[in-house]
Design a protein around this nucleic acid. Sequence first.
DNA 1: AACACGATGATTTTT
DNA 2: TCATCGTGTT
Length: 784
Amino acid sequence: MHPADPAALLEGLNDQQRRAVEHTGSPLLVVAGAGSGKTRVLTRRIAYLLGARQVHPGQVLAITFTNKAAAEMKERVAELVGRRANAMWVSTFHSMCVRVLRREAKTLGMTSSFSIYDSDDSKRLITLVARDLDLDPKRYAARSLAVHISNLKNELVDAETAAGNATNDLERRVAEVYVEYQRRLREANAMDFDDLIMRTVELLQTFPDVAEYYHRRFRHVLVDEYQDTNHAQYTLVRELVGTGRGTGEHAVPPAELCVVGDADQSIYAFRGATIRNIVEFERDYPQATTVLLEQNYRSTQNILTAANAVISRNPDRRDKRLWTAMGDGEKIVAYVGDNEHDEANFVAGEIDRLVDAGIANNSDVAVFYRTNNQSRVFEEIFIRLGLPYKVVGGVRFYERREIRDAVAYLRVLANPEDTVSLRRILNVPKRGIGERAEACVAMHAERERVSFNTALRAATEGRVAMLNPRSQRAIAGFVELVDGLRRFVDDGQDVAEVLDAVLEQTGYRAELEASDDPQDASRLENLTELITVAREFTELPDAPEDDAPEGSAPIETTGPAAGTLAAFLERVSLVADADQVPDEDDTGGVVTLMTLHTAKGLEYPVVFSTGWEDGVFPHMRALSDPVELAEERRLAYVGITRARERLYLSRAVVRSAWGQPMTNPASRFFDEIPADLLDWRRLGPERSSPVRATTFGSGSGGGGGGASRSTFGSRGTRSQATRGWQETAALTLEVGDRVNHDKYGLGRVVATDGQGPRTTATIDFGTAGTIRLMLIGSVPMVKL
DNA sequence: AACACGATGATTTTT
DNA sequence: TCATCGTGTT
C-alpha cells in the first residue's frame, strides 16, 4: 500500500519545487529550466493532490505531447501512489481528444469508428482534391496546401471562415481546397491530427452539457511542455478548465490548472507552437501564480554557463539563469574538422578514447546534428570502426510503405468509407485496377454524389460509365476480397489473424516472397514484426481500469474495447515510436545518433553536438530571419543542456551538401559562448600550409586515416579523392570478410573472382540474399 | 497497365 | 547525392 504520506512527498525538493507541489487554487505556471526536475514536480504534485488534498485520481487529467512522456509520467506517479494511478487520465493531447471524440462522435455527425489520418494520408487526400479542382501542382503543391490548412486548423479557423477571410489568390485557393478537403474527410468518416484537437474544442464550445460533464469530472488539469502548445491546444485546455461562469446547474467552478514549460525550449514553432501561450500565461489567467525553477540537477556549471550565454542572446525573453551545486566540471571541447569525415572521425576517436579510459560507456554517448542526412557520415565511420550505434528518428516503422499498406487494409476493414486507405490498396498488390479504372470510379462517385466505396460497388454491377469489362471484373474481385476479409473481422478474429489473412489473401506476402529485390526481404520482416505487435496487443491489452470518482457518472474506458481492431488502429495511428531510444542497459550499449529536435527531453553524460556551421546550424533558412534564428538558438540551448558531464561542439570547414562541397563559416553560436569555457582541440587546417592531398596507399594508415586527408583541392579533386580512398580501403575483399552495404545491409564475402577493376565478390547478405557485386566505381559498401 | 527514364528539389516533426 | 514524381514508352 502507498499511504502517500504528504510530508514524504515534499522530501528532497528545493523551495521552488515544493511551492509548485503545494500550490493550491489559482492557475499555476511552472517555468522549468532544462534539467530542473520538472517531471519530478509534476509527479509529486499529482501524488500530493491525492495524498494531502483528498483528490480522487479520476479527477486528474494530465496532458503531454508524446506517448513516451505520458507513459513515463504514469509510471512515476504509480511509484508514488500505486494502482490508483490507473484511474487518472494521463495521455497525449491527441489520444485524450480521440477518447472524447469517440464517445461523442454522434454529436458531431461521425461514427465512433472514424479513421485517423496522419499527415501522409491527409496529403494524399489534398492531392486528390487539388487535382479535382484543377490546381496547378507546381504553384499549389499538396505539401504546401497541407501546411496552410494545418496552420488554419491550429488557429481554429474553419474552412468557411477561411473562405470568408481570404484576401488574396493564394488564400482563396487554400480555402477552396480546405472546404472540399473537409467535405471529403467527413465523407470518409475520418479526421486528421489537427481535427482531433479542433473538433474537441468545437464539441466543448458548442455543447454545454458535454463540457459540463468533463468539467465535473476533471478538477485538476496538468499540462506538460506547455511551450509547445499551439493556439488550438491552448483553447482546448481553457475549455477543459472552464470559466466557472455557468449558471444554475451548469455552475461548475473552474478546474485547478497547472502548466509546466520552458519558453527557451520551444523548438516547434514551425508546427504551430506559439510561445505566446507561456509568455502571456499571466495575462490570460490574471490570478495566476508563477514558480521559476532554475536549479539544475543534470549538468556541470560550465555547460550551464554556456547554455545561459547562448540563450541570453534571444530578444524578448524572460531572464532565467540555470545554476548547479555540482561544480564547474570539464571545459567544453571544441573541434574544427577539415570536412565532415574528419569531424566524424574525431567524434569516433573521442568516443573510443573515453570508453577505453573507462570514463563512459557507449550508451552514455549521444551525437546530435541539425538534419537527418548528417547521420550518414557518422554511420560510415562507426561501422568501419565497429562502434555500435543506433540512429533514432528518420523513417519510422509506421511510415514504411509496407506497414502503411497493411494498415490501410485494416482501416478499410474497420471503416469501409475510408477513401484514402481504400484508394491506397485498390491496386496494391497489382491486380489490374489501373489509374484509368480508378478515375472512372472516382468520376462516378462525384457525379452521383456517393462515396468512393459506394461507387466501387456500383462498378461491380456495371453501373459505372466508361469502365471496361476487364477492370470491372478486377474491381469485383477486389470488392469480394475485402468483403471476405471483413467477414473475418466480424467473426471476431484476433487482429493478428486478420492481418495474416490480409497478407495471405491479397497476395501481398506472396509478391514480396517472390521478389528478388533484397529490400523486399526486409519489408517481409517488417510485416512479420507488425503481426507480432498485433499479437502482443491482443494478448496484453494495456487498457487501464477506468475508475470515475464517486458521484460522477461512470465513464467508458479508452473507447474501443481492448484488443479489438479499432483499438489496434488507434494505437497504430497515435503511437509512432516503434523505434525507441536505446536503453542504457542495452547490452554493452550503443551510441545514440539523433537530430537536435529528437534530443529534447533526453540527457546523456557525454554529448557531441556536431555541424556547428552557419548554414547548417543555424540552418540556412534561418540566417536571414531573426524569428527563425531565435528558434535555432533555442535548439542550441536544448542541445547544450542535454549534456551531463562532457560536451563537445564541432564543425567542419568543408561539408558536402547535395553532392557539392560547401565551405561553411563557423556557427555564430560559437561566438556566443564565453571563450574561457572552450577547450579548442583543433582550430582547423593551418592557413599557411594546407595539408597536401596525398596518394592513397592501401589500407595501412590506421588511426588518423581519413582525418588528415585534405579536401582543399578543387571540387572535382575532392570528390575523386574521397571516393578513391574509400575504394581501396573498402574493396580489398577476401573470403570471410564482413561488409556493410548501403542497400543490402550486413553480409559476408563467400567468394571473390577476377582481377583489378574487374574484381567481383559474391556476398551473402543473409535475409537480403546472396549477391554478386562488381567492386568498381563507388561501391556503396564498407568493409568491417 | 506497367515499367523506365529524366527532371526536380531537398529543415526540424512529439501526434 | 538521392529519392520521389511526372511523363513517355512498350
